[in-house]
Amino acid sequence: MKYKDTILEEVCRFLILSIQIFAFYIILNGHLSPGGGFSGGAILGSSLIIIHLVFGKSYLQKKINSQNIPAFISIPLIIYGLLKLHSFLSDTLHWPHPPIGTPGKILSSGFILPLNIMIGIVVAFVLYQAFSYFWDEEF
């Protein structure tokens, strides 16, 4: 996008920050309240899309190298798979469980929080990747 709009950019600077804080809130509270990795990740991904639309691709390129996006998608998925494998097998093979914690606190309920974080990262980058394929028409 060649078109540049100062008002839009300045408003978005504040807006994007609050969108991202909200996304992190939803991801981190996924095991306590409605929400979770998928919805939080979708919000995070849409904030990336707004950055791409308002500030242009090169601005985002400085923060996140698009060469690394496949790695950002696949490493969390691998960690997710390993955690899930642990939780499937821990009962029969008597592996140690993660601590349960007090219900209602952020650090509780075992693996659900790390799983939510992983899913959030994956969904955010997959959404952004899909968007940029279509927007730049280079697929």
Partner: peptide, 20 residues
């Protein structure tokens, strides 16, 4: 006895190592 489950999970986990 857990091998069928491990097969499924192993393939899924290693699949995402290919893009790396």
């Amino acid at each position: 006895s857990n091998l069928p489950l491990i097969n499924i999970m192993f393939l899924m986990i290693t699949a995402f190592a290919f893009p790396l």
